[in-house]
């Protein structure tokens, strides 16, 4: 669906890295929590171009952001379904966030996963407000 290949594991970007796009959404359910997706700008554009069937050169910033939001929604939903397929979660609308001092902050650091896409890094991080599912979060990615 997203024609994206994870080439290798990568290090999460440095906190406050400006050359990228970060999407955040909250989920309510048991347990509730927070999901963040970070994309290098070039990776965001390449993914959006594939998704929409457009030329990366002609994409607007809004198109890249819309696709990044959809990608975050999709990854979060897939992860939560794997963690607790019998539970029920409600996802908030994904939002583009800026100015995060600790984008992969202390609570999410242990559950962040980064991959190299060939056009830059993709990082997904999940943080749950209870400890119940901590052990399964990483494997769900």
């Amino acid at each position: 669906m997203f024609f994206l290949e994870a080439l290798a594991d990568a290090e999460p970007p440095a906190p406050g890295s400006a050359d990228g796009l970060t999407v955040q959404l909250r989920f309510d359910g048991d347990p509730p929590g927070l999901f963040r997706l970070g994309l290098a700008r070039a990776a965001a554009n390449a993914i959006a171009a594939d998704f929409l069937g457009e030329d990366a050169e002609t994409l607007t910033a809004k198109q890249s952001q819309d696709v990044a939001r959809e990608l975050a929604n999709m990854i979060c939903g897939a992860v939560l379904s794997r963690i607790e397929s019998r539970g029920s979660f409600r996802l908030s609308p994904p939002e583009i966030v800026t100015g995060l001092e600790l984008p992969w902050g202390a609570a999410a650091q242990a559950n962040a996963y980064s991959v190299e896409t060939g056009n830059g890094t993709l990082t997904a991080a999940i943080s749950m407000e209870t400890q119940a599912c901590q052990a399964t979060e990483k494997s769900a990615f």
Partner: peptide
């Protein structure tokens, strides 16, 4: 068409 694959939903 949804991301939600939970059985209850």
């Amino acid at each position: 068409i949804s991301t939600d694959a939970t059985e209850s939903r």
